[in-house]
Nucleic acid binder design. Structure first.
Length: 231
DNA sequence: AAGGAACGCAACCGCAAGACG
DNA sequence: CCGTCTTGCGGTTGCGTTCCT
């Protein structure tokens, strides 16, 4: 992709309409946004939208970048480990999606939120004492099929601690939580496959610093120079 | 095969908090 | 302080796809 062509696309987009575009992003818009950010970095989204030649709001550009185009974003099915972690952290923190997403490298708050609503929430229903709800059963099945470093017994403990209660929501959770090892997860982002889960004392430390984050280099899967772009 | 229902997900909206002049 | 702008978050919507009858 020649940068000159990108500029032409930008001109086309600019000329297209005075009104700010809404709705699904086109490939050309994605390329414009990615190219601009690769050269200039992100932030200052309103200016960025104008400077990149995108007829979009800064807000829209930010969302598109963070939820879809950003390097290291993982799409596709959630692993059993991620499934368990979402269930666990949601039961602990409630709908703090961005906070939960920070503990699932490569996943966005939007994706976690959608996953919860479509795969988990709708399957949960108020249950009487001692009755396993549908999601607990499903998760147990999922774990029985997965090769993880955790035991089935641990999984069962997690399920019962996090999902089964007389009130069905906001229950106390099993203290020996499962948690991603940050560094192993990062390596999986870079192509080494899903990292194992670990039973963590470290969760306490991780939880106490919600703002743990990773460097750009950690999640950018390929060096920029190796991309088939010529700027 | 057709069409209605259910599902999944990208994107939008509104609000709150923080930054800045 | 106060007003404005930007950013980030959670809730919601719209629409394409898949499933079911």
């Amino acid at each position: 992709m020649e940068f000159a062509r990108i500029n032409n696309v930008g001109e086309c987009v600019r000329a297209e309409a005075a009104a700010v575009r809404k709705g699904p992003w086109t490939v050309e818009e994605d390329i414009l946004l990615m190219s601009y950010i690769a050269l200039n970095g992100d932030g200052g989204w309103n200016n960025l939208a104008r400077a990149a030649g995108l007829n979009r709001t800064g807000k829209s550009c930010r969302l598109r970048w963070l939820n879809y185009l950003r390097p290291g974003i993982r799409h596709g099915n959630f692993t059993p480990e991620e499934h368990a972690l979402v269930v666990e952290l949601q039961s602990r923190w409630g709908n703090r999606w961005s906070k939960i997403a920070r503990h699932l490298p490569g996943r966005t708050d939007n994706e976690v939120k959608n996953f919860w609503r479509t795969k988990i929430q709708k399957k949960r229903k108020p249950c009487s004492d001692g009755v396993t709800d549908a999601i607990a059963a499903e998760l147990a099945t999922t774990y029985s099929q997965a090769s993880t470093s955790m035991s089935q017994e641990s999984c069962s403990t997690l399920l019962h601690g996090g999902l089964i209660s007389s009130t069905h929501v906001d229950v106390a959770v099993e203290p020996s939580l499962l948690y991603w090892d940050h560094h192993q997860s990062f390596s999986s982002v870079n192509g080494a496959g899903a990292g194992p889960m670990t039973a963590l004392p470290e969760l306490v430390a991780a939880e106490s610093s919600d703002n743990f984050s990773w460097a750009f280099e950690d999640v950018w899967p390929v060096p920029l120079q190796s991309l088939n772009f010529s700027f």
